[in-house]
């Protein structure tokens, strides 16, 4: 593994250095430097308006950061457009469900998988590319949406749509999977299932998760980073974070 060849870089999959995002006079992110280790689930928490989503949007190319670097595998990716970020093996799900609503579950996942194969073929039927379809079906199987392949994405339940979000992201074969509040709006049972799913997939890849639900975070995450008014407040293990007086103060206030 290349990670072993460079022991100094071992562990850090993503590192931000002085990441800053200003909207006019407002700094949604101010000089945030953090690093995400390889493997496991890492959480970013913070009260509303802390800059969590802005951080995600900078990381996935939706926003171009005003200043700072985002280093993935030793390469600065800050300011690259979303499709280029995706090709750096970073995938994301959205806080507000963002699917191809008029397409089937299979097509949602298949077209995502296809982006890693030969999307520029114009003359052959897309179904002739069995490998892409098999890969999509494997992902659908893995997230537990089997039997729903031919359903339209818009006809799925809310929980299933959230799961499909994750399936689409997984189909692009990411190293880093960014989940923006994956359990938002879910029932307790659905939340449990999603937590299980995230735990299962985190074995193979690194998951970065933005979450409000403290129980979800504390049960899942290896490390927790707390943002507050766009600044890094604290970082550490879940136990350390739960005992940190500054964090308690921020969360009690809101």
């Amino acid at each position: 593994m290349s990670a072993d060849a460079f022991p100094s870089d071992r562990g850090a999959l993503v590192r931000t250095e002085g990441l800053t995002m200003r909207f006019g006079g407002l700094a949604a992110l101010n000089d945030v430097s953090l690093s995400v280790e390889r493997g496991g689930v890492h959480a970013i928490i913070g009260p509303n308006g802390a800059g969590k989503s802005t951080f995600f949007n900078c990381l996935t190319g939706v926003l171009k950061p005003t200043a700072g670097r985002i280093v993935v595998n030793g390469e600065d990716v800050a300011g690259l457009p979303p499709h280029a970020i995706s090709r750096k093996s970073i995938a994301r799900s959205y806080q507000v469900t963002n699917l191809l609503r008029g397409a089937t579950v299979l097509e949602n996942v298949r077209v995502a998988a296809q982006s890693r194969h030969h999307p520029w073929r114009l003359h052959r039927h897309y179904r002739a590319y069995h490998q892409v379809i098999d890969q999509a079906l494997a992902v659908i199987d893995a997230v537990g949406l089997r039997g729903k392949e031919e359903d339209l994405a818009s006809n799925l339940s809310h929980g299933e749509q959230r799961t499909l979000e994750i399936a689409i992201a997984l189909a692009t074969e990411p190293m880093l999977l960014c989940l923006d509040e994956p359990t938002a709006g879910m029932s307790a049972a659905e939340t449990r299932q999603t937590v299980e799913l995230i735990r299962r997939i985190a074995g193979d890849l690194t998951v970065l998760i933005v979450e409000h639900d403290m129980d979800v975070v504390m049960g899942l995450a290896r490390t927790v980073t707390v943002l507050h008014y766009g600044e890094l407040l604290a970082a550490g293990s879940p136990a350390e974070i739960q005992a940190d007086p500054r964090v308690l103060e921020v969360y009690l206030k809101t």
Binding site: T60, S86, Y94, N98, L99, L100, R101, S115, W120, R121
Partner: peptide, 29 residues
């Protein structure tokens, strides 16, 4: 007809359904 059912054509239809999502899964829309 062939083009609309090719991998390329499926990307076009993904753009129609959801442009930002199509970008996020790695397509230069």
């Amino acid at each position: 007809r062939q083009v609309t059912r090719s991998p390329f054509g499926m990307v076009l239809q993904a753009i129609r359904e959801n442009e930002s999502r199509t970008m996020a899964i790695g397509y230069d829309v």
